[in-house]
Computed example of a mutant assay.
Amino acid sequence: MTTLLSPEIDTVGELTDRCDRCGAAAKLEVTLTSGGDLAFCGHHANRMHAEIARVASKVRVEEGFVWAGK
Rank of each mutant, 00 (worst) to 15 (best):
I9P: 07
A53N: 06
G35H: 11
A24I: 11
C19I: 11
F40Y: 14
E51N: 05
D37T: 12
R18S: 15
I9T: 11
L32A: 01
E29N: 03
G23Q: 06
K58P: 01
L28S: 06
A45T: 08
R21L: 13
A68D: 15
L38H: 08
T11C: 02
E14Q: 06
C41L: 05
T11Y: 13
T3I: 10
M1W: 11
I52V: 09
L4T: 15
S6T: 12
G69F: 09
E62W: 14
R47S: 10
F40R: 00
W67D: 07
E63W: 10
D37M: 05
R54K: 04
V66L: 00
V66D: 12
I9W: 13
E63D: 15
T16A: 02
R47K: 12
A39H: 09
R60D: 09
G69E: 09
M1R: 00
H49E: 06
R47V: 12
T31W: 10
G64S: 10
G42V: 11
E51R: 03
A24M: 10
R18I: 15
F65T: 04
T2Q: 03
T33F: 15
F40T: 10
H43P: 00
A56W: 04
I52N: 00
P7G: 04
W67Y: 08
R60L: 02
A56C: 02
